[in-house]
Simulated scan of single mutants.
Amino acid sequence: MGQYWKLINLDKRQTYGGWGKLGGCLFDWSPGLLETSLSTTAEKLPDCDSLIFPFKPGELFEKAYRSPLPNLPLEMIHEIYSNAEDLADLICLGMTCQFLWEVARGHIYRRVAAVVAIGDRIICVGDYLRNEDIPDNLLTPEEKVEFTSPNPDDDGDFTLYSYPFDHEFPPQLRHDSHSEVPWFLLQHRRTNSPVSLRRQLSTPAPTQLSVLRNLSRHQYVRESALIAWREGAQAEIKGTENVGFGEIVFSRICLSSDPSVSMSYDGDIHRGVWAGDRFDLVSSETEWLEGLGEDSGWTDVSDEVLKEVEAIWRSGYPYY
């Protein structure tokens, strides 16, 4: 019968319902519902200078902690900071001299930003997922016990897919067996869908473009890059005129043990690099980008992500 998929908000313990096969739901309007759920922008964190002060550590530290460490290549120092597991160790190392503190500030800021991020963890789980294939850092120890422990009322293995999450969307927007709208009808109403109409009627001005942020990895995708790609691709690749942030997120958060995705795409979409990450949308691309400092820690992955999306749409649309 093939593998079926379910979109889950781990933090809210909610599911958006069963979405059928990946080769169907990825290419219809369904991911736009995910985009709607990401529309709330997180509160803006103060800039690095306001939060991690650029002060000079002081003469005591300069004399007591002289070492050849500042003479190492800058890339190596960044690597040392990146691998420091304890925030206190990172701070103490940075305070040993002015140079190391300036390098450390960006790393400290990223750690703090990760703690205060309010985006929810989103994942799309296949029903062929085995518990042993769930990444170690995806669930807390308590969640792993709760979501994957044997259930006496379940006939088969109890997995993240079978956990009884609450439904978030009303029945008419869900694609499970209890949906009021048959799944086969939803598949053939793509061009008349609410999301397609919303995108057609709400072409934003350049100052209103958004930024999709992966709060877990400090990566972002610019809507200006998405629009430019879409304009160039839609004449050649069917279906790309409706690709938005929902499709981008959806294509990178799938997780299963089995590569059965009802698509001809041969990449590892079933082991999504963003599975279980936190996301939000920033409403003003220009303003947000202008506010980034040199050591902001954010990485623009627009080109990388859109290259992967193009490969998926070239090989996999439509497959149902």
Rank of each mutant, 00 (worst) to 15 (best):
I248W: 09
L38W: 04
D300S: 07
S50T: 08
E142G: 00
I91V: 15
M1S: 14
L38V: 02
P171D: 05
P164V: 14
K63N: 01
A205C: 09
L10V: 12
Y109P: 12
Y163E: 04
Y161E: 03
E310L: 09
P194A: 05
E231V: 11
Y220E: 14
Y320I: 00
R213S: 12
A64D: 08
P164T: 15
P68K: 00
K44S: 13
D11C: 02
S262V: 06
G272Y: 03
V221P: 06
P141W: 01
F279D: 08
T148I: 10
P171W: 01
L186Q: 15
C124G: 07
F55H: 08
C124D: 09
Y161Q: 02
I8K: 13
K307H: 12
D89A: 06
C97T: 12
P206G: 01
T299Y: 08
W298T: 08
W5I: 04
V221T: 11
Y220S: 04
Y320N: 04
Y16L: 14
S193Q: 10
P70L: 04
R271T: 10
P150G: 01
T140C: 02
P31K: 05
L292F: 02
D155M: 07
G32R: 06
I52T: 12
Y320E: 07
A117D: 03
L226D: 05
A113N: 06
K12S: 15
K44G: 07
T299S: 09
Y4L: 10
P204K: 07
P152R: 03
V249P: 14
P164Q: 10
P68A: 01
C25A: 13
T240L: 10
C25K: 01
E290K: 15
W101T: 00
S179A: 15
F55P: 04
A275T: 08
H188R: 13
E247D: 09
H218N: 10
L186V: 05
S315R: 15
L60E: 14
A205K: 13
F147R: 02
Y320T: 04
K144S: 09
R13F: 05
G106L: 03
V181C: 00
G276S: 08
D266W: 00
S284D: 14
L34T: 01
E146R: 03
L87C: 02
S82Y: 05
S251E: 05
D133S: 03
Y81K: 07
D11G: 10
D154V: 04
F184S: 10
L281F: 02
K144I: 00
C48S: 06
G32Q: 01
D280C: 04
L90W: 01
A113G: 04
H107D: 03
G246T: 08
E223P: 00
E310I: 00
G24L: 13
S177H: 05
G2N: 09
G246Y: 00
F27Y: 15
S30A: 14
S210D: 02
S224R: 09
E62I: 00
L93H: 11
H270P: 01
R198A: 12
L10K: 02
T148P: 05
L51T: 13
I269E: 06
R130Y: 10
F250T: 11
S202V: 05
I248Q: 05
V309R: 06
I118D: 15
T159S: 14
S39L: 10
I134N: 09
E231N: 15
G297R: 12
